[in-house]
Design a protein around this nucleic acid. Structure first.
Length: 288
DNA sequence: TTACAGGTCTTGT
DNA sequence: ACAAGACCTGTA
């Protein structure tokens, strides 16, 4: 167990910001011991199952000036070596908040105030490629279900829990799994079969991608069948941490039409476009 | 019942 | 180059 205070971090906001599909709240079986000031989340990453307890209500009214305390089901070494990276601890989100709050964009200020606990996780590239291919023209519940089925069917047991499965590597998934309608992939199954097959036969591709800049990574992703501009931008943002990437989906399209009828100038946010997109997206999805 | 889900591909102009 | 239509399927 490792405990620490982290600014600009809220588990509920991260879990519901749409960047991850295996990060969810868990409610203890004994509901009598649930404290209203705590919330517990679980996730699987880097082959490990992790639970995290945040010592405050997972409220919408997150105040970055009062950081929460987090208890991780890992030791200090695992935090330092693995999960501090995953939670993007070296990015200064307070600085981005200052940039927003000193701008003249009142709408964006409102979004930041509402979702200041969002961080862009540094998730696994391959997992992002597959999950965001599944996400196209789909709903969260069904996406989550398909991802979990895929992990159970083809993933390996996590190194610290026999009841949780890591995300399957390209070589872990027999191509027949994409013929199984019960996986819920729908028409995306053939895209998934292609990308698993291609990546298994071109194992250097993922490593090459991770060495590319944003433009080249986009180009290398867009030639794969089933990856269009939106999914490619999500992969760049969430899988490669190119924070210049600005995925435009139906919601962001509506935001841009509503609040930026003359277009949005992303250059003034100085390499933080993707983070700003997350604040806007979360605000639109969850603000009543 | 019809429309919608964090889109993309194909086809027709 | 650009605009429709089609596309699996669970949910409301």
């Amino acid at each position: 167990m490792y405990k620490m205070e982290i600014p600009n971090m809220d588990l509920a906001q991260i879990a519901q910001s749409g960047q991850c599909f295996r990060f969810r709240e868990i409610t203890p079986a004994d509901s009598d011991v649930v404290k209203p000031s705590e919330s517990t989340y679980e996730l699987v990453a880097f082959g490990r199952h992790l639970t995290i307890t945040q010592s405050k209500p997972s409220s919408c009214l997150y105040n970055p000036n009062h950081p929460s305390t987090f208890s991780f089901s890992i030791n200090k070494e695992e935090w330092n070596n693995i999960f501090s990276y995953y939670f993007d601890i070296n990015t200064n989100y307070e600085e981005i908040g200052k940039m927003i709050n000193t701008s003249d964009d009142d709408y964006l200020k409102e979004c930041y105030k509402y979702g200041a606990g969002i961080r862009i996780l540094r998730q696994d590239l391959w997992e992002m490629i597959v999950t965001f291919m599944i996400s196209q023209n789909n709903n969260i519940k069904r996406i989550t279900n398909s991802v979990e089925l895929l992990c159970k069917a083809c993933g390996k047991k996590t190194i610290n829990s026999s009841s949780h499965y890591s995300f399957p590597r390209p070589e872990d998934a027999p191509l027949e799994v994409f013929d199984d309608p019960s996986m819920g992939f729908g028409y995306r199954a053939e895209y998934l079969r292609d990308i698993f097959d291609f990546t298994k036969n071109n194992p250097e591709w993922l490593h090459e991608l991770s060495g590319m800049d944003y433009q080249n990574a986009m180009a290398s992703l867009l030639v794969r069948k089933g990856i269009g501009p939106k999914v490619a931008n999500c992969i760049c943002l969430f899988g490669l941490h190119h924070i210049d990437a600005f995925p435009v989906d139906t919601h962001v399209k509506q935001i841009l039409n509503m609040h930026y009828p003359n277009g949005i100038d992303l250059t003034k946010y100085n390499g933080a476009a993707g983070i700003i997109q997350q604040y806007m997206f979360y605000h639109k999805i969850h603000k009543a």
